[in-house]
Simulated scan of single mutants.
Amino acid sequence: MTIGGLTPGAPALLVLEDGRSFRGESMGAQGETFGEAVFATGMSGYQETLTDPSYHRQVVVATAPHIGNTGWNDEDDESSRIWVAGYVVRDVSRVRSNWRSDRDLPSELARQGVVGITGIDTRALTRHLRERGVMRVGISTVDLDPASLRAKVLQQPSMAGADLVGDVTTSHEVIVPPAGERRFTVAAVDLGIKDMTPHRMAERGIEVHVLPASVSFEDLRSLRPDGVFFSNGPGDPAAATASVDLLRQVLDDGMPFFGICFGNQLFGRALGFPTYKLKYGHRGINQPVMDRTTRKVEITAHNHGFAVDAPRDEVIDTPWGAATVSHVCLNDDVVEGLELHDADGELVAFSVQYHPEAAAGPHDSAYLFDRFTDMLAHRAGKDA
């Protein structure tokens, strides 16, 4: 008997690259999948997680033990498809009970061809990843031999050095109109953008031009934007050299800049800071971050496996002005934001490592879109 996309009792196997294995039941599509095993600590918002392009080529382990009770709807997707390579939950709900739900989670996973596994000890798996670090993984419903599946896992590419932006970026320009009167125009470079991000800018009177990651500086500049935005996205920022070059041209031109997540990492590299791979990363909607500008602590949404290596308490001179670390994670002191001030001390560019658009929450960081709007208004006043 099949309930949605879940066939109770159908065996499935998960094997990590170091040989640790877990047996459970199939959830979603039949077959096998491979990726980087990561864990996400959010207790809700699984639909937004699964459709976040930043999770491309990653197998997501939900640390919350019960997933799927609100089903799946057609309004909360953050992109046009599910991007995770696979999904791992301890207990998948067999009943969906939210009035907005259109279908159940296993059915949607199956419809989109996503292989998942349920009925395993996700706490043990998460502790294993915390101790040893994220690693390659395979999930299969067709090859239930751990040694055989592990051999396939070891053939998979590492996330380090992976250039994945081309897989997730838009193929053409998309214009998101402002809500109400247009105040500003922003060129948003799509490195794996979530749908909520241009919506948050549109709420503030910004006309957003979502552009392919391959856009040339000349084509971007021809839009005569008031500012430039770099989005979140998957992969190793060290491999995205073309995007870093584009950002340096933006800074050379003096256009106001705002970046989030992958955009923060590229901003750091453009300023001359290296990036590095975190042991197990930050993923979830409950990460504490301090805004060093205001000293306020925000609960924030994260999805990153790489970070910027910048000095916390120094002002670094760059060709475009003085760069400083603006935000830090209170769990591990990882850099979570950068600011750039010109020779007059004015803010001309900034970025954060987390997601202020906050789908599916929290909303502590929505003020950052206001900060960007204020920066655009200040620049427009100077040019007037």
Rank of each mutant, 00 (worst) to 15 (best):
R23E: 15
P106V: 14
N73A: 07
D313R: 07
S93N: 04
P8I: 07
D252C: 04
A242T: 15
G180H: 05
P237E: 06
Q249H: 02
D332N: 15
E78L: 08
N331A: 14
G24P: 00
G361I: 02
I120V: 08
T275S: 10
T241L: 14
V308M: 07
D309R: 09
S231C: 01
M27E: 05
G192A: 06
F184P: 00
M290N: 08
G68I: 09
L13C: 07
T122I: 02
K279H: 15
N331M: 09
E108T: 11
D332F: 01
V88D: 11
T126I: 04
G86M: 10
G86D: 04
Q249K: 13
P178Y: 06
D364G: 11
I316H: 00
R20M: 13
V142R: 11
V88S: 01
N303R: 12
G259A: 11
A240W: 03
L14N: 02
R23K: 07
E336C: 11
D317C: 03
G227A: 13
K152G: 06
V137N: 01
D333K: 12
E181D: 10
D370F: 00
L271C: 11
G42Q: 10
R103Q: 15
V250H: 02
D383K: 14
L220E: 01
E339T: 15
S101A: 15
R57V: 05
V153Y: 05
D226R: 04
Q156A: 08
G19R: 01
V186A: 13
P237H: 07
G31M: 05
A366C: 02
G31V: 08
S231E: 04
V215C: 14
G227I: 10
A301M: 04
Q112H: 05
A10E: 14
V59L: 14
N69P: 00
P177H: 13
G305Q: 15
E108P: 03
K279G: 15
E357T: 08
P234Q: 07
V228K: 05
I316D: 00
D52P: 04
D364T: 11
S26V: 05
L164A: 13
A310Q: 06
G45L: 11
E298M: 06
G71K: 06
N73Q: 12
D74P: 00
E78V: 00
G321E: 09
I260M: 09
P53N: 07
D383E: 12
T169P: 04
T70G: 08
L247H: 07
D190Y: 03
S231Y: 06
W320C: 10
V208K: 05
E32Y: 00
R204Q: 12
G205M: 13
N303F: 12
A29L: 03
N232Q: 12
Q47W: 00
Q287R: 15
T49D: 12
A242P: 03
P319T: 06
G28W: 06
D121A: 05
A37T: 05
D236E: 12
P311S: 02
L6Q: 14
S158C: 01
K277I: 04
V38M: 06
D121W: 00
R90L: 02
V308K: 01
M135W: 03
F369P: 07
D245W: 02
